[in-house]
Nucleic acid binder design. Sequence first.
DNA 1: ATTTCAAGATGATGGCTATCATCTAAAATG
DNA 2: CATTTTAGATGATAGCCATCATCTTGAAAT
Lengths: 186, 186
Amino acid sequence: MGTSRRQKAESRRAIVDTAARLFRERGIDGVSVAEIMDGAGLTHGGFPRHFANKQELVGEALATALSAQGGEAGLAAFADAYLRPEHRDNPGAGCVYAALGPEASRGSAETRHLLTQTMERQIANFAQTAPGETEQQRRNAAIGGWSTMIGAMILARLSDSTDLSQEILSAARSYLDVEAAPSVKS
Amino acid sequence: MGTSRRQKAESRRAIVDTAARLFRERGIDGVSVAEIMDGAGLTHGGFPRHFANKQELVGEALATALSAQGGEAGLAAFADAYLRPEHRDNPGAGCVYAALGPEASRGSAETRHLLTQTMERQIANFAQTAPGETEQQRRNAAIGGWSTMIGAMILARLSDSTDLSQEILSAARSYLDVEAAPSVKS
DNA sequence: ATTTCAAGATGATGGCTATCATCTAAAATG
DNA sequence: CATTTTAGATGATAGCCATCATCTTGAAAT
């Protein structure tokens, strides 16, 4: 089944994208290599042509998922897009920290390092527009506000009561002083 | 190996306590039945005398872990005890939501229901002492404050930089207006 | 005291998973 | 055009895990 180099690159991208989605949907341990390859339209045997092992794919998939997160947005705009039912109901395209935070903290040193680097950048970015007199105050507001979003998303996904789940998103919005209500209620 | 009824009850408690700790330390999927039985001082074969399957033990272990959480404390006192390096470094005895939230949200309906019930109680409890004119305002403050704690704990555990990890705990404290600094810095 | 019962041990068993070996055919190379 | 290379398929293989079967032994019941 000789395949061109362009197709190999496309296959690789499909594998990484599928993994980035499935890991967030079902957890890293909850997805097998074969399932990822299947989701990418391939069979399990092609895997070693792209990655030495699963851990290597985990690194690539998380890096891809993290780079897709809104890196430029200010705290308020980010929170407005974050605290929505669409985000809650679509973890596969959503926040890595809310979907995989605890599992990643038990993961490899490389994984933790990648997430730490991205955290630093995200906090520094939020601190630029966060309220506060001093840099330290702005960083505190950035960290506190971002933590609120992540915790609220986790609780909202956990709740089996749609009313409570919606209340959690709304409460976090008002707690963070995000003006607009979610466009879609559910 | 005839064993008395008192010993059976003790074995059961040891199994549940070990599971409650190991699940929070390594994730539910990350711990085998045999490891739990070993941690309880037994071999894997005794498991079916106590539980029909692993899922049943998961329910018991989470219920036990949740009931051990400070159910009476006000929001400020809870946050003060929560946002500490000792808690960060000992997930096996700590908050179920910060250790297992995302994994539990992908778990069984029974698991989600248990966690939802406990959430409702925790929020109602926090709302009693949270600031706000109306009940709704107090509930928003309770949900927002609790979410901040959970998100901050997850980020603090994720960070491979001790400085950043400590900054996250401190920032969440100042964000939540908790006066005292953590007694142990690390 | 004798019999019954069951907690927990040892030891399968079947299913799932990551990884490796081999085969194939098409693309790249000259 | 002939040769080499390799993406991806099929097909092992070894390890881990949950669960079940069976045995032993001392407690409970009579």
